[in-house]
């Protein structure tokens, strides 16, 4: 494999409550540029914790995360600089309710990337156009549907021009009829070569879009492979029983 590795995770561990709860028990994985990595697993398997450790929203208790050549888990690393290059999309959108859509999108670029408001507005409007929401630029988040909110949240992350996008169950809080519009945006992103790590329960999406699927349970990677390998020829018993419940 000659592809460039963008995130290298080694022996990642996360213990909560002074070691009483082991959410991650030594997870190692290399994520390549332009790869779409989908993480599946039962709830409590540690997949969200794994994702949140990638940008240190959760500080791992052991192991390392090397992002574009820098070990961001090392002490005295200014994590804020690296988070700018890792967009994150949350289950509950987490749009800023006191700002218009446009302000939500341009706050980061103007404050952190020191873009002018006009420049940031232009970029934001282009991206809004692409997700079909350019007419909602002046709306407040409370005026949007769930699917619209999540598409805006994706655009907010994209406005920072990240190198990788992290998705934490982006469709789990949506009404069923709105799941499609969000997945469409994500498929679009995958198509243009964005590196993506997606924690999801959408097996259809995983099968269709993923380059590689990780199956996690009890804080470890139980099995990984292409969607065909994972969904059509599951090896481990745990994966087989998981798939029999969700498919």
């Amino acid at each position: 494999m000659s592809a460039e590795i963008i995130i290298s995770v080694k022996d990642l561990e996360k213990h909560f409550n002074a070691g009483a709860v082991h959410a991650l028990n030594g997870v190692s994985v290399d994520i390549e540029k332009s790869e779409v990595l989908v993480v599946i697993g039962p709830s409590g398997s540690g997949k969200s914790t794994f994702l949140r450790c990638l940008n240190l929203l959760e500080r791992p208790t052991g192991g390392s995360v090397v992002f574009e050549g820098t070990d961001i888990t090392a002490p005295r690393v200014n994590i804020n600089l690296y988070r700018r290059r890792m967009g994150m999309v949350f289950q509950h959108f987490n749009l800023f309710p006191h700002m218009t859509v446009l302000k939500n999108l341009t706050l980061g670029p103007t404050e952190l990337l020191k873009k002018s408001q006009a420049e940031a507005d232009k970029k934001a409007m282009q991206l809004l156009e692409r997700v079909g929401l350019s007419d909602r630029a002046d709306a407040y988040p409370s005026q949007l549907s769930g699917g619209q909110k999540q598409r805006i949240a994706i655009v907010r992350a994209l406005c920072m021009e990240p190198d990788v996008m992290l998705f934490d169950e982006p469709t789990s809080a949506l009404d069923p009829e709105m799941v499609g519009e969000v997945l469409d945006v994500m498929k679009e992103l995958a198509k243009v070569g964005m590196t993506m790590v997606v924690v999801t329960h959408e097996m259809g999406f995983a099968r269709e879009v993923a380059d590689r699927v990780l199956f996690m349970d009890e804080g470890v990677i139980v099995e990984q492979g292409t969607p065909e390998e994972i969904f059509d020829h599951p090896q481990s018993e745990r994966l087989q029983s998981f798939l029999s419940k969700v498919l």
Partner: peptide, 18 residues
């Protein structure tokens, strides 16, 4: 305030004070 708001801010790259 919902902790998600704080996480959203930090995930964009804002520091604590920002």
């Amino acid at each position: 305030i919902d902790p998600g708001q704080f996480e959203a801010g930090r995930s964009i790259g804002f520091n604590y004070i920002q």
